[in-house]
Each structure stands twice: as structure tokens, then as C-alpha cells.
Simulated scan of single mutants.
Amino acid sequence: MGRGVHGRRIGHSPGLLWRFYQLLRGQEQVLVRPAAELPLILISYAKGDEEGVRRFRESLDAVWTTLPPSFRQRYAGTLQGAPPLVVVLLRRHNICACLGHHHPSGTESRLTRKLRDLSGVRTGELDLAFEAIREWEPLPLSNLALPPEAGTKEMSSFRWQLALLAVFLHELHHLVSPEEPEPAVRGRSQKFYTDALSHFVFERFGVEFGLRQGTGTLPPVVQNR
């Protein structure tokens, strides 16, 4: 999901300065074994970005697993077709201002190519910009529809985790089904986010989420790296 670019089939490169910056900071990896229906996930991140890693792991371990089965079932086909191992390059921001990208075959990082060659396991790759996702407002008027008691750190934390999960599933959908039109992919992730947020608000605060109908569109998506 990105801001300001709509489905252009162009290659995305982080640029030489960005690569040099990442080299100076150093990279670390952590292997995550989420719920059985999700692929094995290797998170690659810069030193100092542990907060983003923690939030993303919580989106997989806490948010996904506590959603109603009917919500998770919406991505059953995507998850069945997903590579057994997915590398997630976690960044604070992308220089293109996009929230994430899926990386088609041949555009992956050296890390992913090496893992695939050494293991023989089908491996996919995508990136997520965790700070940009935290700042993202997919439903800009939704705060007006929430009860006063929902203005808490708990709510802010959940929305960040849910947004990370929604962008991850969105990019995974593109990775598995590159031929599927963008409106269909975006429509599914938009409804998933809105319904999951509504479910949380009702379960936690006992009220209906007021803007479930007629919500604004999600940011446009860059379909290629």
C-alpha cells in the first residue's frame, strides 16, 4: 500500500544512499513462527528498530489469532498459495513514501536469494514501512465515530498493529496473485481492516463503530518493488 502512486508497474529501488545508511546501521534478523496457517516469517531490520519488530510480531501473534475465524478465512486462499517462507524487510519509511511493496521474482534482496538457494524452499519477499504505517490514517474520520473512552494508548496500539497486519496481508495477496486487479486486492484489505477495527471496538467498548459504511479508500498501492 502506498501514498501517491497507483499501481505503476515500475521497479522500486531504495537507492545508494539508503543502502549505505542501512549498511552503517547494520542489519539483524529474527525468525517468527506465527499461527499454523501463516507462513514462516523472517524479519530483517536495522539495529535500533526493535520497536517496529515487536509491533509487527504482535500483529501476527496477538491480533491475527484473536480475530474471529470468519475474518481469517477471507485470506485462506492467499495463505494456502503463499510461499512457506516469507522474508519481511522492515523499515521505518520507504523513500517513495509507500507503506509496503511485494517483490516479484528476480527483484528480491540478496538475503532472500541466498536463503532460497541454500534451503531449496520457495521463498517470497516484501517490505513494510512500520513508522509510515503507524502515521497512516486509513479512516481519517473514524476518531469521530469512537466513544471518548476509546482515545487510549490501548486503542492507538491496536490500530497500529491492525494496520501492520492489513498491509502485510495486502502485499502477500499481491505476491501470491499478481494477476489480480488492484481494486479487488484493495477492497479486500480495506474491508478486513474496517471490520476488524469494528469488532475490536464492539468487544472492548460495547459500541458499534460508526463509520463502517461509506469509508474512504485506502492509499493506492505500488504493485511492484
Rank of each mutant, 00 (worst) to 15 (best):
R72T: 13
L60H: 10
T65Q: 09
V30Y: 10
P220D: 03
L67R: 15
P14S: 05
L89Y: 06
V221S: 09
A129Q: 12
V86F: 00
P219H: 08
V30M: 15
R186M: 06
R19C: 01
P147E: 12
H6E: 09
V88R: 00
A36N: 02
T112W: 06
V121E: 03
L164C: 10
P181H: 14
P219D: 10
V176E: 14
L24H: 07
Q22T: 12
E137N: 15
R159I: 09
I10E: 11
R19E: 04
L146K: 11
A97C: 13
F209C: 08
N143I: 12
H170I: 06
L164D: 03
A132C: 01
L141S: 08
L89T: 09
P39A: 03
V63M: 13
N143Y: 13
W64T: 01
P220K: 08
E154I: 09
H102I: 02
S189N: 04
G187Y: 04
G206Y: 02
S156N: 14
L162S: 13
W18Q: 04
E154F: 11
L23D: 07
Q29P: 05
H93K: 12
R204K: 13
G214M: 07
V86N: 00
L85E: 00
G151K: 09
R113N: 00
T194V: 11
G151R: 14
R204L: 07
G15C: 11
S109K: 01
Y21C: 01
R110I: 12
R57V: 06
R72G: 11
L79E: 02
L164H: 05
V5A: 03
Q29V: 15
V30E: 15
I41M: 15
R25K: 15
P181V: 05
Y75L: 14
K47D: 03
I43V: 15
L169A: 04
H102S: 09
P178F: 10
L211Q: 08
F158K: 12
L24E: 01
H93P: 03
P69F: 06
V201N: 03
P84D: 04
G100N: 09
H93G: 04
L90H: 11
R91P: 03
P83M: 07
A82E: 05
G106D: 14
Q223L: 14
G151D: 07
V121Q: 03
H101S: 10
L118M: 09
S157D: 14
Q80R: 14
G26V: 08
G77C: 05
Y21Q: 02
N143A: 06
G26D: 12
E58G: 06
G106P: 01
